[in-house]
């Protein structure tokens, strides 16, 4: 299974890609604790969509992983995986472990 820290680095690359496109008040800090969406979050709904797309693209480019992050599994969770950088990294790690275990 891929190290959590590797996934967080990939999400940081997505943040680097996205930040120049965001208005200054929405720009994201590269920290595991950064709140993405919801209370205290910086992104509006369109910003979150763009971040998820950037994260999917970076996963493909940097780790050759093809994942659709915003699927029914993610949406049906009680706690959104898109809350913080850390929760999203954890969710991606779970999805990868599932696919590795068949």
């Amino acid at each position: 299974m891929r190290e959590q820290n590797d996934i967080i680095q990939i999400l940081y690359a997505a943040i680097d890609e996205l930040n120049p496109q965001l208005p200054p008040e929405q720009r994201l800090e590269k920290s595991a604790a950064t709140v993405l969406f919801g209370e205290g979050g910086r992104l509006d709904s369109l910003g979150l969509v763009s971040f998820i797309v950037a994260a999917e693209q970076k996963l493909t480019e940097m780790a050759d992983i093809s994942l659709t992050l915003a699927d029914e599994k993610a949406m049906s969770r009680r706690n959104s995986p898109f809350r913080t950088v850390a929760t999203l990294a954890e969710y991606i790690g779970e999805r990868l472990a599932e696919s590795e275990n068949g």
């Binding site: 890609e17 496109q21 763009s50 797309v53 999917e56 693209q57």
Partner: peptide, 8 residues
Amino acid sequence: AKLMQRRR
């Protein structure tokens, strides 16, 4: 659209 939106 995922590709296009990078350049807005």
